[in-house]
Write a protein that binds this DNA or RNA. Sequence first.
DNA 1: GGTTTGAATGTAAACGCTTACATTTATAAA
DNA 2: TTTATAAATGTAAGCGTTTACATTCAAACC
Lengths: 325, 325
Amino acid sequence: MAHTIKDVSRLSGVSTATVSRAFSNPESVREATRAKVMEAARILDYQPNAIAQSMARQTTEHIAFLICKHDSSILDEFYAGICDGIMRVTKDADYRLLVSTADDWGSTRRNQVDGVILGGSATVGMISGYVRQNTKIVLVNHELGGFDFPRVVSDEQTGVRMAVEHLISRGHRKIAMLAGRFSPYICEVRFNTFCSVLKEHGLPIPDRYVRICDPNIPDAERQAERILIQQDPPTAIFGANDVIATGAMKAAIRLGRKIPDDVAVIGYDDSRVCEALEPELSSVHTDCTRMGELSAKLMLDLLSGNKPEKNRFVIEPKLVIRGST
Amino acid sequence: MAHTIKDVSRLSGVSTATVSRAFSNPESVREATRAKVMEAARILDYQPNAIAQSMARQTTEHIAFLICKHDSSILDEFYAGICDGIMRVTKDADYRLLVSTADDWGSTRRNQVDGVILGGSATVGMISGYVRQNTKIVLVNHELGGFDFPRVVSDEQTGVRMAVEHLISRGHRKIAMLAGRFSPYICEVRFNTFCSVLKEHGLPIPDRYVRICDPNIPDAERQAERILIQQDPPTAIFGANDVIATGAMKAAIRLGRKIPDDVAVIGYDDSRVCEALEPELSSVHTDCTRMGELSAKLMLDLLSGNKPEKNRFVIEPKLVIRGST
DNA sequence: GGTTTGAATGTAAACGCTTACATTTATAAA
DNA sequence: TTTATAAATGTAAGCGTTTACATTCAAACC
């Protein structure tokens, strides 16, 4: 067994209270005393037991990041980015980070964390448990209708608008979209915004220019091919995300179309794959690391008892123009 | 404040011991009693306090995954994969997972976890602290010379051998390598194995067929171009990882070389980018999720007091042949 | 009905800290 | 030196569980 505060107390000849203070509130003990304590601790290789501290202090200095997305996880580049941002902040603040993909996480061992950052689509059911236990909540990349939790979201409308208007500014009039079948809310926003922007510019959206595909390359490739081989094909394709846009590019290349001359392609997310493609894929960048950092800072703020000045933080995406447009 | 076991005890009219038993050892209390307890707990919305349990049981049911790699993190596809594997297992076993990129993690709050899985290159210094505290240790994707910790590693020699012999079997005699400058140990193994396999087959390795590059696409592209534009260029390039191989492909495409006819390219890691490229990139697949799962299972084994039958588990990589070769 | 026995429950001492409050010690002022 | 005051330290009661041990209860046997 590791040594306890009592052993240090005995060896250094001071009370356990003083040992405790020497560790967690050094200014409150005399220099000489602190030295004695630390020396004893060194000899015994003592470190305060974190669990006992949590027990006594009623706080764990743990927060959790929960990825609430059906079939997705830390493997998702976007959530990994958020997680990375959260890790940076929690590390600096000396908080520990628990990570889980979670539907039902809330039901078990809830009171082990001071706060939980929910990424993806949390449900009211998940959240109510935390609320009852007074566990702090921050939402990231998601809004929960009817609630005003502190949250960090990305301005997808603007992102899509930038992508589409970029195509238009390049002279494209026949623009197709490969809509997605992944996160329902996101897919809806991206498609709806695509439509409104085109309408605003007086451009038509014939049905044959729209296809819905699964978020994997082969399906995107199939659907893109269908769009491209028709009579009077579009001169540009907007993919609902980079994976889908990648499929579009592959289809175009296989059909012998030149990118961007015969057909331009743009994606969304600015994932790593964009720079790997030839030509490189234009896309819309969302700074997910910053989203993570911001949500973690919000959480720390909450935990230190501050109310943040506002509850909704919006990250503005950036258009990244590359060779594909 | 949340209710405690005492509140439940009072409301249900039994002792706290019985409440505790009703929760953590249901068979040991009479059906009727358990029902009373559970009803009281339901009314009070009681849940056992996990911290107090950890305190009393002297176990946290937390394990940590530490990514010990200088400039890398959960953003790294490979470590994300390991992490995903660990998460699956810990989730099933109802353990919580702490994740951190760590150099110095060991120094602080060490005793909050029952065990730690170290990914990347842990140092003896990091480990000694855990050993003293009797925290269980498992290594993944790394060996620690001179120690025999339970560990899961990938058989890189075989992986490289498969890649190179695949090129040879395709008739290539002039094979170049873009060696890497990332993880020193890995880079060394990959390069050395490349050389020995070529030697075994009596093939030359002229200096002009080897270049070392940083693990980013632009640099790989530059170096690959240097290799390709020389007189008597290689007919195949082995990239030390997929990023580097991607750069090689881009260089070849830009130079107007046909892949795989003018030059074949193969990578290592089988990351997501492989299937995005056109043609798709052949590579060597390491099942990192399985490495994660295995290391987590090893850890759970250790924590339940079993000695694993052996300490070194080797994952065999698989060759994935695609259009680029 | 009285024993015996095993199961169910209760009592109370840990687990290793923190912290309000009490006490002692050092410092400054008179 | 005495006294007032502030700083340092000590005492002991929590924090919310678990669990060894003691006690009670119920069923089964004689």
